[in-house]
Nucleic acid binder design. Structure first.
Length: 276
DNA sequence: AAGCTTCCCAACCGCTCTACG
DNA sequence: GCGTAGAGCGGTTGGGAAGCT
């Protein structure tokens, strides 16, 4: 909001797949200036796309910290669990899978997990029929979905409220950073104590920002983003680090962070972390 | 090898929500 | 309170790759 540069003039917007050149333009522009108002991005960056398209491309493909490649077993289980609880709230689910986008998760669900669920359901109903015919008291067999959903989720210990609420620890490295950023603080910020908002912060940008933290240590040379940079850091590791921070937070209501690099110096957080 | 089908994923579309004047 | 515009989300589509006949 508060965007002044509007898409004036009904110029024809390009559609379809993005060329590497377009990607570079968009990436370079956003890294340099932040996205600000999305509708102004294509104009300022000289792209013949609409703002919406730019936004999507950035979020789903260009944004630093995105994890590419196959979903791990753990991620799979997380999706199943969360989908069981939240339904098709892909963006909510994505918040719990660092480096994955809602689109990616949605696609994965439709192309693979949905079938798996259907299969599991079929098997279960088949079993139930068999069971019903052989025995009269079949009351407390656990629901198939729940069963599936809880398999292998030993390390996911959180509850999800049906609304926007999630108590999954989300306070991350970037929390202090954004706050610092907001406050305009120029502190090198080695040890900062941050008061928490509502116990657990609901800010969805935290994950993003945390990914940027990881990215800050990953190769990002000459605008060339290496997809596999993140694969060197296991998801578990990232997940654990979140939990660790979460624990700190739970214990005293404040978090003490020891930043690695000064992120803001090598990546413009101003918009992605602050506004989105 | 060619044609057909299926699958996957990037991108688009349309809707809702929110902020602002 | 109302209208407008931008952002975000979920559903859907289209095109290319892979697999099959």
């Amino acid at each position: 909001m508060g965007c002044q540069v509007l898409e004036k003039g009904k110029q024809k917007h390009r559609k379809g797949l993005w060329s590497p050149e377009e990607d570079n333009r968009l990436r370079n522009y956003i890294l340099k200036h932040g996205h600000g108002c999305w509708s102004s991005v294509p104009i300022k960056s000289g792209l013949q796309r609409n703002g919406k398209s730019c936004r999507l491309r950035w979020i789903n493909y260009l944004r630093p910290g995105l994890k590419k490649g196959v979903f791990t077993k753990q991620e799979e289980e997380t999706i199943l669990t969360l989908h069981n609880m939240l339904g098709n709230k892909w963006s909510q689910i994505a918040k719990h899978l660092p480096g994955r986008t809602d689109n990616e998760i949605k696609n994965y669900w439709h192309s693979y997990l949905k079938k798996r669920m259907v299969k599991a359901k079929e098997m279960e109903s088949h079993k139930e029929i068999q069971y019903a015919t052989s025995s009269s008291d079949t009351l407390n067999s656990s629901p198939p979905l729940q069963k599936l959903a809880t398999q292998g989720t030993h390390n996911i210990n959180f509850t999800i409220e049906p609304t926007n609420q999630s108590s999954l620890p989300k306070l991350l490295f970037a929390e202090w950073l954004s706050v610092d950023h907001v406050n305009g603080g120029n502190s090198s910020n080695s040890f900062e104590s941050l008061p928490l908002r509502n116990g657990f912060d609901q800010n969805p940008t935290l994950h993003e920002a945390s990914m940027q933290h990881y990215m800050s240590e990953a190769p990002f040379d000459g605008g060339e983003y290496h997809d596999n940079s993140l694969t060197q850091i296991s998801e578990t590791e990232m997940f654990n680090s979140q939990l660790k921070f979460g624990n700190q937070m739970v214990t005293n209501g404040f978090i003490h962070c020891i930043p690695g690099n000064d992120l803001s110096s090598n990546f413009s957080l101003n918009n992605d972390a602050m506004y989105s």
